[in-house]
Amino acid sequence: MEVADVARDLVSIPSHEREAAAGDFVEEWLREHTDATVTRDGAGAQEGRGGNVVARKGAGGTSLALVGHHDVVPPDDSQVDDGGYVVRESDGRLRGRGSADMKGAVAAALCAFRDADPPDGAELVFASFVGEEVGGVGARAAVDRGFAPDFAVVGEGSTGYSAPGVTDVAVAHKGRRGSTLVAEGSAAHASEPEAGANAIYRASDAVDVVRDLEFPETEVMGRQLSGSVAVTEIEGGSAWNVIPERCEVTVDERTVPGERAPLERTEEVAGVTWTVDQDLPPMACDDAAFADAVLTAARDAQAEEDAAAPGDGTPEHVVKPHATDAGWLADAGTTCVVCGPAEPGEAHTATESVSLAALDRCYEIYRDVAESWSG
């Protein structure tokens, strides 16, 4: 089976509420088309997610993983037909929910895993996780169970960053820390505001603290990565004539490796407490040789394609604005890069699609790295 065929079959399987059926497809495909050791764990079992699918072949002291996820965000109505996902091809693209994020990359990784012959003394791993779209359920469970490859290529989108149609290699990405500020006061009649303590005023003071914070930033392999901090929601008060006793503020922070905004300063405001609700870790590749090896594979694949139809550029090391499962793996000690066919603006849209040429290109990249990298 070619990459496009596998991608088409996988994209057609609904996996926005329960991804067990998509996991079944991945597991059965590996058992049918490879002689690898295939396992399925219990990640997300209580929610019916079906567990992560992991396959291994080769053996040795160095392990390289090709990593993806087979869950997707809820589809647009136009992307569903008779209970399944609509999949079609046009203008050199595969169209459907999950084609870009990220079943297309999973298909490319499956075929590369099947065809690659890893070097002596190296283990090649394939992993497709559940629950990436809801905070890395599968990746966190895998890490907790001891999943710890030495190196990983995570197939999230990196195409079109340096130039249209060019598959780059991301050496870092931002994380996301979502926080809630709760301002407590005391209620009073609005005609006697001095009798109470206005929680909205306290929240406003905390918002001023957030507004004045400097954005975190760092540099990874010569690429600048800048974070951000923004207040995104505010809710408080109970009636037009009551001094509010409670107000909540939501803060979205895009984090960078090794840096966090000092949001704890908001608790210097009387009555304000700060709680972290979600903290998706950023990623920074910690091995320049590995990052360069994947970049060389990307350039070779792009050059081979451009020899037939000249393209617009040469792959580069880039940084991504979005959190991925690479953050969880890197946090646990795996050296990661991100390299995949999806382009900016394609994921999570009603017109989601992925370039068929980019799928084939990623297959070549993954196979090249799997057959050449031994640490």
Rank of each mutant, 00 (worst) to 15 (best):
E132W: 13
V54L: 14
G48V: 13
T62F: 01
D76L: 07
V229Q: 06
V72W: 07
A203R: 08
R56H: 08
A199F: 09
P282R: 06
F129A: 05
E268H: 15
V73I: 07
E245Q: 14
R97Q: 13
T334H: 12
F290K: 10
P310T: 10
A284K: 02
A152Q: 13
D71C: 03
P164K: 14
G160Q: 03
L359G: 04
V231E: 11
Q302E: 14
R88H: 14
E304I: 00
T351G: 04
G165E: 12
E235V: 09
A323D: 04
D325Q: 11
H33T: 06
T275W: 07
V169K: 01
A239G: 09
V182A: 09
G185W: 06
V53N: 13
L295K: 12
V169C: 12
A22Q: 02
V242L: 11
L329H: 02
Y201E: 03
D150L: 14
F147H: 00
I13H: 14
G60E: 05
T62W: 08
C339R: 07
A308V: 12
P118R: 11
C247D: 07
P341S: 10
T296F: 00
E133A: 04
G327H: 12
P216G: 04
A188M: 03
S128L: 01
V242P: 06
H189A: 14
Q79S: 06
D279C: 13
S179R: 09
C247N: 06
D208A: 12
G375V: 09
R211S: 15
G237C: 08
